[in-house]
Simulated assay, not measured.
Amino acid sequence: MSSTRVITANGIELFIREEGQGPLVVLCHGWPELSYSWRHQIPALAAAGFHVVAPDMRGYGQSAAPSDVSAYSIFDTVGDVVGLVQALGETRAMVVGHDWGAPVAWHAALFRPDIFTAVAGLSVPPPFRARGKPLDLLRQGGVTNFYWQYFQTPGVAEAELERDVAHTMRVVLGGRGLADPTAAMFVQEGKGFLGHASGTEALPNWLSEADLAYFTETFRKSGFRGGLNWYRNIDRNWELTAPWQDARIHQPSLFIAGSKDAVITGLIGAKRVNELERVLPNLKRKLIIEGAGHWVQQERPDEVNSALVQFLKESAAQ
């Protein structure tokens, strides 16, 4: 049975769920999620012989949410994971991330190969540092309504998402009833981020009303600003990571995504998935789960758990 506690790491308080004994595995969630998003992985990895720790990431849930936008750079978020490993009394860990947690995991492996001995990323491919700032490149390409852009101005997305948190979580996690999931990434004028969906669709079979209620209650208390601030550092992260231009992640690595995930089916995402080995020369497996969407570890826990257990066991044995 997993337990929870609050631990101080990197100068802030992080709420964590943990279970098991053995080599340390840190699970990093994405947006708009929580450590609860790993509810199917924590017991499975603990049963396989690992000490599993999943924090509410900076800005989320019961963890600290600094008010300054600049406190959410990739250095801060990776610093939290490094600090967490140290606060747990360990010197080594394997790191797994989903959605926004994936860049944290990839960069943790990139920045601190002395600590992170293996890395798995779910849904978001590893960093391919482009020729310019991501938001600049979008504008230059004639794109002005991508959701990253909508999230930039403090207060705008918060007001929409916090108006009815239950509706927000039902739409974002429960799916938007769209034939083309990539359409959800573009914000129609005057309709906001949630404008595509009615929110009256039945929940998918992997998300119960009780699960949804937990996410809703937690975000009702915390608000959305902390998580949105991660998006407000996208260009800054590009600037900060200049020293790692064309750097590669040499540790054993694993990539998992759903075949219907808009992150990997779009033009850029598909290209990156095809070129994973450019950044991950020690890629052990690329698992694309047929029919799964973006919330892959919640949608298809058995397949994800099986792949993670095999990968982590092999990596721990090296």
Rank of each mutant, 00 (worst) to 15 (best):
M1Q: 12
R5Y: 11
A9E: 01
I12D: 02
E13I: 06
L14Y: 15
E18Q: 14
Q21A: 11
P23L: 01
H29K: 03
W31V: 10
S35Y: 01
R39M: 04
A47Q: 13
A48R: 08
V53D: 00
D56Y: 12
M57C: 04
A64K: 11
A64F: 11
S67C: 15
V69H: 04
D76P: 08
G79S: 05
G79I: 03
V81H: 02
R92C: 05
V95C: 01
G97S: 01
A109C: 02
D114F: 00
G121Q: 09
L122D: 03
P127C: 11
L135Q: 10
D136S: 14
D136T: 14
T144E: 10
N145F: 13
V156Y: 06
L161D: 08
H167R: 15
H167I: 08
R170P: 12
V171N: 13
L178C: 08
L178D: 13
A179K: 03
P181K: 11
T182H: 07
M185C: 05
V187D: 15
V187P: 12
L194V: 07
G195S: 06
S198G: 09
G199Q: 13
G199A: 04
E201V: 05
N205I: 11
L212W: 01
A213H: 02
Y214E: 12
S222P: 03
S222L: 07
G223Y: 10
G227R: 15
N229R: 15
N229T: 10
N229D: 07
W230A: 09
Y231R: 14
N233F: 05
R236D: 08
D246M: 05
D246A: 07
H250Q: 13
Q251G: 02
D261Y: 10
V263Y: 05
I264L: 05
I264T: 14
L267H: 11
N274E: 14
E275F: 06
V279C: 03
N282I: 01
Q297M: 12
S306G: 07
A307E: 06
Q318G: 09
Q318D: 12
